[in-house]
Simulated assay, not measured.
Amino acid sequence: MTTPRPVATPWKPAQPWPSRLVRLATRALPPGEVRDRYRQEFLAELAGLPGPDQTRHAAGILTHSLALRSAVRGTRAGPMEDAMTAPSKPLLCRTNAHHHWEWASTPDGQRYIRCARCLKEKDSGAGGQWTGGASMGSFGQGGG
């Protein structure tokens, strides 16, 4: 019994728009043979995918092109890339519209009030003694 030989399928180039996305993504890489190698590899990957998956794959390559550039260069992500991934303050805390106040203690046992989400300390206005009320319920969900 002989094993059947695999049938060679004709090679088809990737669709035009996914190819353009890959070419745009690889423009972020340093010029030279590294850029050319990645471009060729990404285009070969596209050619092996069915039509609808090509666009999705090319968009993924484009969205990760800055991270790939950092990895190829061996450097850390720049400030713009850090800003895209760094957690930020909740919107209501940033606009000072609403804080979730809670009691907290310093290492030496002093109690103070802070926002549970953004860690902003409530201004006592009385030289360290908060005079706004006797219990947590008097300011529990109040605005900033």
Rank of each mutant, 00 (worst) to 15 (best):
P16F: 06
D53A: 14
S19D: 07
D108E: 13
G125W: 12
V22E: 07
T131I: 06
W17A: 10
G109N: 10
T26H: 01
A59Q: 15
V34E: 14
R69A: 15
A116C: 07
R20M: 01
D108H: 07
G133K: 13
A134I: 11
T9M: 02
G142I: 01
A116I: 04
H98V: 07
R76H: 11
K12M: 09
L92H: 08
D53K: 07
T75E: 15
P4I: 05
P31F: 03
V22S: 01
A77D: 00
A97F: 08
P79E: 15
R111D: 00
G140A: 14
F139Q: 08
G143N: 13
M80S: 05
L49N: 04
A25S: 06
L91N: 02
P18F: 08
L66K: 13
P13F: 05
L119W: 06
G140F: 14
E45P: 03
G140I: 12
G125V: 10
C93R: 01
A116P: 04
T2P: 07
G127A: 12
V7Q: 11
R27Q: 11
Q141R: 15
M1I: 05
R27E: 12
C93Q: 04
A126F: 15
Y38R: 10
R69D: 08
Q141E: 15
A126R: 14
A116G: 10
Q129M: 06
A97P: 01
G144N: 09
A83M: 09
E45G: 07
P52H: 12
D36F: 02
E102D: 12
W101I: 10
E33V: 10
T106Q: 04
V7I: 13
W17T: 10
L91G: 03
G48P: 08
R111C: 01
V34A: 10
D108W: 05
E45T: 12
M136Y: 13
H100W: 15
G127V: 14
R37E: 03
S105H: 09
G142M: 12
G142L: 11
C115N: 06
E102K: 02
R73I: 02
W17P: 02
A67V: 09
E102A: 11
D123M: 01
V34P: 04
G32E: 09
Y38D: 01
A134W: 04
R35Y: 01
G32H: 00
L66Q: 06
G128I: 14
P6R: 12
C115K: 02
W11L: 12
V22D: 05
G132I: 00
A8W: 06
S88N: 02
K120L: 11
R27T: 08
A8R: 15
F42Y: 08
D82G: 02
P16T: 07
G140L: 15
R117N: 10
W101L: 09
Q129G: 05
R117G: 03
